[in-house]
């Protein structure tokens, strides 16, 4: 049987896409992978999307499974909560929404969203299992933790601080000021805090403590060369300057592991 025009247009190209004629594409140009069709991109889309071939049953399955995906989580939640509460009026999910004011602010919506996430039965069941897979089998860690050797765990914020840019770099401090509108220089903030306490007759003692990845870096590094390098102290590049400036401000600073 002779294939239809539409089917022939949808066939994959047998030749390589021609060289671009224009530096930027025109609306009338076909996309490179469909250059053989010689149709504008929009007509190509129209043709391709309106002529999908489905094996019998797949179309209905796609739609049914998609709708099931949408309703599955709230359905599990409702059934789980109903079994525990025994009455629809006492369902926690209902009371979460009831706590919303008539005109909710973004904070209200975020609070409800966060509560729904925390109370989700599906999430509570999934979270430890997926994290086990990602952490133990694939070494990915999670949102809070990096995985080291053996397996050591490192708090993500500590590692980011150690490998991050010098925290006393003026450019970084300027960005910090723009982002959070707080005193970006930790020394100035500490001095200000010291002065406030001194006005109340209280002394401030600051103890700069190096974080775990800066003293146990070899438990994170991969190659032998990097492990050797990481076996010494690896503070943030600004740490020594921070300590020196603190000492200039006449603070009592205890020193840990060579700092």
């Amino acid at each position: 049987m002779r294939p239809s025009t539409e089917y022939r247009l949808l066939r994959r190209p047998t030749t390589q896409a021609p060289l671009p004629k224009y530096s930027l594409p025109r609306y009338a140009d076909p996309t490179p992978s469909a250059a053989h069709r010689k149709l504008p991109r929009e007509e190509e889309a129209d043709l391709a999307l309106k002529n999908t071939k489905f094996t019998p049953g797949t179309r209905q399955t796609l739609i049914a499974l998609f709708l099931l995906t949408i309703v599955a989580v709230p359905l599990v939640q409702l059934v789980g909560e109903f079994r525990a509460a025994g009455s629809i009026s006492r369902l926690p999910m209902i009371s979460i929404f009831k706590s919303l004011p008539w005109l909710p602010h973004s904070e209200d919506l975020k609070r409800v969203e966060r509560t729904l996430e925390n109370e989700s039965l599906v999430s509570q069941w999934l979270l430890p299992r997926v994290q086990y897979l990602l952490t133990v089998l694939l070494g990915a860690g999670n949102e809070q933790v990096y995985l080291g050797h053996d397996p050591w765990l490192f708090y993500r914020a500590d590692v980011d601080h150690v490998i991050g840019p010098p925290f006393l770099d003026p450019v970084r401090m300027k960005h910090r000021l723009q982002a959070s509108r707080v005193q970006p220089d930790p020394i100035k903030a500490i001095v200000d805090f010291r002065n406030q306490l001194a006005a109340r007759g209280i002394d401030l003692v600051v103890l700069p403590v190096s974080v775990k990845p800066s003293v146990e870096g070899e438990m994170l590094a991969v190659s032998n060369a990097n492990r050797t390098q990481a076996s010494g102290a690896l503070p943030n590049p600004s740490f020594n300057e921070f300590k020196a400036r603190l000492e200039r401000e006449k603070y009592a600073c205890s020193i840990l592991r060579g700092f």
Binding site: L134, L137, L138, G139, A140, G141, Y146, L147, G148, V159, V162, I163, P213, S214, G217, L220, A221, V222, S223, A225, N226, R227, Q229, A230, G232, L234, P235, N236, P237
Partner: peptide
């Protein structure tokens, strides 16, 4: 690079990320 750049490899060459 700063010496602490030695730690970065341990964070990005994890099986999950390489995969």
């Amino acid at each position: 690079p700063f010496p602490n750049a030695a730690l970065i490899g341990g964070l990005i060459y994890k099986p999950y990320y390489v995969l």
